[in-house]
Design a protein around this nucleic acid. Structure first.
Lengths: 165, 165
DNA sequence: CTGTATCCAAAATGATACTG
DNA sequence: CAGTATCATTTTGGATACAG
């Protein structure tokens, strides 16, 4: 009764049958083990990496770098040309590139030419992360009709207010 | 020369060789085709679904619902017990549940008992989305040592300021 | 060209009080 | 118990000016 999963399980209402409680107990145990294994801090990779896929620019940056190394200005212009929702600000691009670089997903290098050029490229780790993004994207593309249908149904029948099921 | 990929390609600097330009052209063509196929709007599924995995609560909610249906209050208490970074506010939980419900990833139902109980459960679509989250999570867990090492290296050697490569 | 600093706007989240 | 409304706070993103 002293272990965390049991304590968490106390959050369940009394209306649960034994099978449901067991299912939730297993699920909670897994969650708590995962939380204990890697940190719960805000900047832990298990939080920041999924966040990359959700933020406005990181996945697009990785997408463009998947085509080969690019300079800061090239990235900025390409994003402006592709995103069609207003380009990225110089500040944000620098910020996102730093974050990606810090996590080892993007590499920054200066060529030996004159004048020197600052180039960004995906690392092997970054390519793997990007592959996961592409997998999710493909699923989402396939699921989009179903999602749109769900939205239409929700917006039609279930307005605001306390709905009666 | 009038097609969008060619126009976007103009963002590339003059220093690119033919092979690099071809690679980027292919990459850009794919991106632009995808952008044209589904919308670029902020609430398009291809944007909101990846955002779900990145926001602070949605994936956790799906994770808990993966253990079986749960009530609003149960979810709230379980999140408080598991998240250990402060629980979710009632408002945010309602908001996130509505969003998930609207996209057809979570189903809301009222049981026929007395008193009636409002229950939330993962839909088949939601279970698929959650599976993608788990896949990404597993990869991130495996990659965490590499990411931590990259962060340590970055924080050590490359301070702020114009770094000399 | 790359990058930083500063200030500002918008969005996400939380706290609290309230309704049915 | 489920849900809404309102307000404060935090986070994220953008505009602009500036430095090397």
């Amino acid at each position: 009764m002293a272990d965390p999963a049991d304590r968490a399980l106390a959050a369940l209402g009394p209306g649960r049958d034994a099978a449901a409680r067991r299912r939730h107990a297993d699920n909670l145990a897994g969650l708590l083990r995962a939380m204990a294994a890697h940190g719960r801090e805000r900047d832990d990779p298990v939080r920041t990496v999924p966040a990359l896929l959700g933020d406005r620019w990181s996945s697009l940056v990785m997408n463009l770098l998947a085509g080969g190394m690019l300079r800061h200005g090239e990235l900025r212009r390409l994003i402006g040309a592709v995103s069609s929702e207003g380009g990225i600000s110089q500040r944000m691009l620098t910020l996102k590139l730093r974050l990606l670089e810090r996590d080892g997903l993007v590499a920054r290098g200066i060529t030996a030419e004159t004048p020197p050029r600052v180039e960004y490229a995906l690392t092997a780790l970054g390519a793997e992360a990007h592959a996961h993004y592409l997998a999710l994207l493909r699923w989402t593309e396939a699921a989009t009709p179903a999602i749109r249908a769900a939205r239409a149904a929700f917006d039609a029948g279930n307005g605001p207010g306390p709905r009666a099921g």
